[in-house]
Design a protein around this nucleic acid. Sequence first.
DNA 1: TTGTACGCGTTATCAC
DNA 2: GTGATAACGCGTACAA
Lengths: 334, 334
Amino acid sequence: MAMTIRDIAREAGVSTATVSRALRGLPNVDPATRERVRQVAERLDYVVSPAASRLASGRAGSIAVITPWIARWYFGRVLSGIESVLAGSDLDLLLSSIGDPSETHHVPPHRKLRRRVDGFLVISLSTDTEGVSEIFESDVPVALIDTERDGCWSVGIDDVNGARMAVQHLINLGHERIGLISGRVMPTPFRPEENRWRGYHDTLIEAGLPVEADLEACGHFTIDGGERAMTTLLARPNPPTAVFAMSDEMAFGALRSLHAHGLQPGRDLSVVGFDGHEMADHLDLTTIVQPVEEVGARAAQALLDALDDPTRTPEQVTLPLSMVVRGSTALRRH
Amino acid sequence: MAMTIRDIAREAGVSTATVSRALRGLPNVDPATRERVRQVAERLDYVVSPAASRLASGRAGSIAVITPWIARWYFGRVLSGIESVLAGSDLDLLLSSIGDPSETHHVPPHRKLRRRVDGFLVISLSTDTEGVSEIFESDVPVALIDTERDGCWSVGIDDVNGARMAVQHLINLGHERIGLISGRVMPTPFRPEENRWRGYHDTLIEAGLPVEADLEACGHFTIDGGERAMTTLLARPNPPTAVFAMSDEMAFGALRSLHAHGLQPGRDLSVVGFDGHEMADHLDLTTIVQPVEEVGARAAQALLDALDDPTRTPEQVTLPLSMVVRGSTALRRH
DNA sequence: TTGTACGCGTTATCAC
DNA sequence: GTGATAACGCGTACAA
């Protein structure tokens, strides 16, 4: 039924070796021969069998994307950036979500994907996370997003500095009790969370401001979680006058909590988010904007480059952040 | 370097055939033998070569997901649902985004994916869309999401009825000039859009209400697009008093436009969305809620079933919708 | 229940 | 520039 390389060879009057070379654009093929083979292949609607090709060549022909989640704003966008560059290559994109590493017990990706990918793209996960660390034992190249590791390519932003920008902005506005809506209790398997926490922490310390457990609450990076976290903070004996939320989605939830309490963002309590979600503009949320799709695209390109020339030494690229100030932050009222 | 089935066979003192049978859980293998083989494989850290396995068996070992977009709320969630069930199978998930079929000119999926997948999962795309229709020429099973086609499994909601619910709700509130924020000018390659348009149209006709070009505007299924569309509608000579937006994201934009014009949703103009986005609650938006992740999961499961037993006749499953009424809709003021 | 041996459709290494 | 042909690693009749 399906055409094989032999059918093409016979029809074109050449050997299978020549067909293979011609179709793959290898050198040492007479232009006329190549064209003839091309036409025959086209006419007979021939496509190489990836399985056979992979078996013979030893290449897997695909790369895997390891992500904690798919249905969240940030990850969807990164994934989109990745897909856009991989679509232009001849590699398949294998999608693998592992969920929160501490909650789920999926089959770890390194086991399920062994021998079937030429490279890994890992999003946001600390490289020492169980189920992720084993990836580095294989000998395929890895490009990291939002993390770094010796021997790996990586693309991301400076999360520590992003958090610093946010917190410093609040300090500049006169705030002294600055709260934090984080994802979960430390330690976390997510590198950005770790770094944003450090940025928050260090900036407060340097400014001589209080760092208290009472100023922090977990929002699990969801809207509802952010709302609950804000509500928790408001109920504390001595609530913050400003809050840094580690993601825009959690900040959205925080804003909602404020409204529910009859408080006005900016005037009564300042909120800064992180991401650059489209809705931030609509909700008048001050936020740290990162080039999410570009992060994904650059990482994918780095991996392709590494695959192309394995001798290249890995680089770490850090993309620039910016802060967009909106109505959710304002001078502290005395 | 890498272990082969022969290494295991030798080490376990059996033939490669037995190893193959034992590891795949086939019958007619002595339990003791199977266990021994298992242990040897485990100890030697053996994993089958997917390329070899696929070449020999003729199975591709993977399924492709064809989606117009990745970084949009609805598609990310559907994808997540799909991934969650595929993760439990032994099939790889190949992700392929084709963008807006009328805008982009990617390599059509059927060409890039020929011979490399055992089945397709298509999201929201009309089956006669260029680049999609060719999929059905291959002989692999296809599960459709939000569309139907003879010979294919399909999972989705009743978009026509969903739109009817939304519009009828507005009619019940006394509205007579009911606007529409759609995605793009018809014809559209997206089935849900087509159906929601029909639901909107038919309901108005049946109620004897006006259907005018002036009552419609395109929002391209984005927040910003929805905002522009609402602004356009407000600028019309005789604006609607209520609007049905085909997606929550466009409705969010519409709400923003209202605020920008000093209008209050519900009181001054009613808005209904579609999807059940988490933010709908936060923005007090009335909306039609669909079980998005379940749609993806059910479709994936249907495809797995079809793969398991190709003789089964395809079914069409329609999942239930519900309407959540919030403050963005209210009685028309006279 | 187990083993033998062939075939799957390419790629890659040689010769020519 | 081109052609034989040996891998590649596994699945699977068929035989035992």
